[in-house]
Design a binder for these strands. Structure first.
Length: 498
RNA sequence: GUCGGUGUAGCUCAGUGGUAGAGCACUUCCCUCAUAAAGAAGUUGUCGCAGGUUCGAUCCCUGCCACCGACACCA
């Protein structure tokens, strides 16, 4: 049965170039998107950029650019990164896009107004000029901002607020009922603990302090704050807000794909996706996303990535040096999908040599050589009844968002295949028992087909290369009886490093 | 401070009420189809500390220590 499958990543904030963590998020989403395409689902995969806010303005000033120029530059880098990582996204939405994004946000905002869920409220707080933001009393040291050593001013602002409190019980119920699934479990607990204490949230700022953003409809002195603006990307990209006064057809993408099946996010923005966003959707009368998958952060040699330490990993550098498939493999295999994980070049090279070169690459090469040298590079497939591949947990791992485990399952097949080769000794069989040899090779070619099939969502180029070596069209998971494999040994998939 | 999590072999982590496992690394053996790859065997641990429950705890309870995360209108 064909299902639709709509998956999104968080949108990258354009105050700096995409980092390795965003690369990981793109990759995880890509695997889920590719996997769902593979099993025949109707997939839409969205990523994008979050381009508004004072932080972008400040970063732009530093670079002597306008916020738009900086956003353009970073958005370009995201497109480049997606291309270099072989990401199969169907679309990329930018929040500065006045044609696609803004109308949706305005329509969505007006829906909240219609529901009576936006109201203006005076807000007074301690404003630190250095931070350009409000601070809590508890953040101050001796009444002074610890960073800027200045006493914050008492400032009163009138802002739009969203009645989050009106919906938090409903959101909680839906999360508890599993209608809105939070993965993994630990994050579910975290959000449930938060909901009760949640208060209404500010949805706008005076445009005097926040210029770079979307103006509040009918209130030009106010600019929308990030939640109202950024979260809406998930529906603006589907054409929400484009249909009014035009034909219904325009909106078909929204009808076809909303609600999202998975919002993939980092653990830092769980609250906004699991609480604010669902509440906003309830207010607007729209269905809630089905699941929020939360990944962790990448540390570097055990330390937090930070600009001050200077240990930030640039994904472009990694891809440049090791190639996209190796980068994909390492990040997807070494970093547990829902946990923090560590990046180091040493581990990357160990994974490369151990798993890709010695494991997968070597297996493909040895089997290809055996068939080429002893069968003239041709093998007519038939089912071997006395060999059975063990049932694996590959699909379950993907469905449970344990992508690293899914790859582990594939490598179990590789190990199994290597053991099989050594057990059967085909180089002896070739001399003494051509029949047994043929059987051995049939099993192995079947295993390699299986491996290539399973690798498709993770290492699409590698899967393709393996298929080319074996003349495998990779059209189906199973192999048709009498399928003719034409094997032509190649240069080797992953030459050993050093 | 409140809530939650983690602490198991050199490293990364699984795991169970009956005194522990995997992968990598390391050692030895073996093979030669293959990318000096593969395969086999093996070494390594006071299962954070101190109590308690139990015939028996690494797994249950309590306290402590260490580290981490969430609780901030940070974008």
């Amino acid at each position: 049965m064909t299902n639709k499958f709509y998956i999104t990543t968080a949108i990258l904030y354009t105050n700096g170039p995409p980092h390795i963590g965003f690369a990981l998020e793109l990759l995880q989403a890509d695997v889920l998107a590719r996997y769902n395409r593979l099993i025949g689902n109707d997939v839409w995969f969205l990523t994008g950029t979050d381009e508004h806010g004072t932080t972008v303005v400040r970063a732009a000033e530093k670079n002597k650019k306008t916020p738009q120029q900086l956003a353009d530059q970073v958005a370009g880098q995201v497109i480049d990164l997606a291309k270099k990582l072989n990401i199969s996204n169907d679309d990329l939405i930018r929040t500065s896009d006045k044609a696609r994004h803004w109308p949706a946000v305005v329509k969505f905002w007006n829906k909240l107004v219609e529901s009576g869920d936006l109201y203006k409220k005076k807000y007074s707080g301690l404003y630190c000029v250095g931070h350009e933001s409000f601070m809590k009393k508890s953040d101050l040291v001796n009444g002074v901002c610890p960073l800027h050593k200045t006493e914050p001013e008492k400032v009163e602002e009138e802002n739009w607020f969203f009645k989050l409190t009106k919906y938090k019980k409903d959101v909680k119920r839906k999360i508890e009922a599993g209608e809105l699934k939070i993965v993994p479990e630990s994050r579910l607990q975290e959000i449930l603990n938060l909901i009760d204490d949640a208060e209404d949230v500010s949805f706008s700022r005076p445009s005097s302090s926040l210029k770079w953003g979307i103006p509040v409809p009918d209130d030009p002195d106010q600019t929308m704050y990030v939640w109202a603006d950024a979260l809406t990307n998930y529906i603006s990209a589907l054409g929400y807000g484009q249909d009014d006064a035009k034909s219904k057809i325009k909106n078909s993408k929204f009808d076809r794909f909303w609600p999202a099946d998975i919002h993939l996010i980092g653990k830092d923005i769980l609250r906004f996706h699991a609480l604010y966003w669902p509440a906003m959707l309830l207010s607007a009368g729209l269905p809630l996303p089905k699941a929020i998958n939360v990944h962790g952060f990448i540390t570097v040699e055990g330390e937090k990535m930070s600009k001050t330490i200077g240990n930030v990993i640039d994904p472009f550098v990694v891809i440049e040096k090791y190639g996209s498939e190796t980068t994909r493999y390492f990040l997807l295999r070494e970093i547990p999908s829902t946990e923090d994980g560590d990046f180091s070049y040493k581990k990357l090279e160990e994974r490369y040599n151990g798993d890709l070169a010695n494991g997968l690459g070597n297996l493909v090469q040895r089997v290809a050589t055996l068939v080429e040298n002893n069968l003239g590079g041709e093998l007519i497939y038939r089912r071997i009844t006395n060999y059975e591949l063990r049932i694996m947990n590959y699909e379950k791992a993907i469905q449970e968002f344990r992508l690293h485990d899914a790859l582990g399952e594939v490598w179990k097949v590789i190990v199994e295949a290597n053991k099989y080769v050594d057990g059967r000794k085909p180089w002896v069989e070739a001399q003494e028992s051509p029949e047994r040899f043929l059987e051995t090779m049939t099993v192995l070619v079947g295993l390699i087909h299986h491996i290539a099939w399973l690798l498709q969502p993770f290492l699409p180029e590698t899967a393709q290369k393996i298929a080319e070596v074996f003349g495998d069209d990779l059209l189906s998971k199973g192999i048709p009886e009498n399928y003719k494999f034409i094997i032509k040994k190649g240069a080797g998939l992953f030459p050993r490093l050093k």
